[in-house]
Design a protein around this nucleic acid. Structure first.
Length: 148
DNA sequence: GCCAACGTTGGC
DNA sequence: GCCAACGTTGGC
């Protein structure tokens, strides 16, 4: 799951503990949260659009998907006038801080490693903010950070 | 700051 | 339903 650290970083999550992952306004990403996530699942926290781009830590999914309240709030950047409370368009999940890696796993490292050639994150033009992660990629990354 | 890639919008 | 125009994402 991607976030721009200038907006919300792993350190922010470490401080907050649990946080609603709001602002997702892409149907594919929404569907992944709705259909493919379960409470207790582990997710990577990815920093995009930053000085250091890459995977910075782990979190756990702490809720099922539910309507993102920011879509109803005119003051919010992610306000969606076409969404209604009766039929909300956008969902979010709560995420819980699990761990910050000692060192970031840079995107460039993943792109240069053939083991990650079939990872969604390393595909050209990939901008999906919520992506599925294969078990083998998860395991490899945990090895890289010294946990296996 | 640039720009390629992608998603969405809206006219027809 | 097509597709050009536009807006956004996000690496570099």
């Amino acid at each position: 799951m991607k976030s721009e650290p200038s907006c919300y970083s792993i350190d922010d999550l470490a401080r907050d503990g649990v946080e609603p992952w709001d602002g997702v306004r892409n149907y594919q990403a929404r569907n992944l949260m709705r259909d493919d996530m379960q409470v207790g699942d582990i997710a990577f926290f990815y920093h995009s659009n930053a000085k250091e781009i890459g995977i910075v830590g782990l979190m756990t999914i702490a809720s099922a998907a539910y309507p993102d309240p920011t879509q109803f709030d005119k003051q919010e950047d992610h306000y969606d006038p076409k969404s209604t409370k009766e039929n909300p368009r956008w969902l979010l999940v709560d995420v819980k801080f699990k761990q910050k890696f000692t060192d970031i796993i840079p995107l460039a490292v993943l792109k240069n490693d053939p083991a990650f050639a079939d990872m969604a994150l390393t595909q050209k033009g990939m901008r999906l903010s919520v992506q599925p992660v294969k078990e083998k990629h998860y395991k490899k990354i945990m090895k890289m950070v010294g946990q296996s």
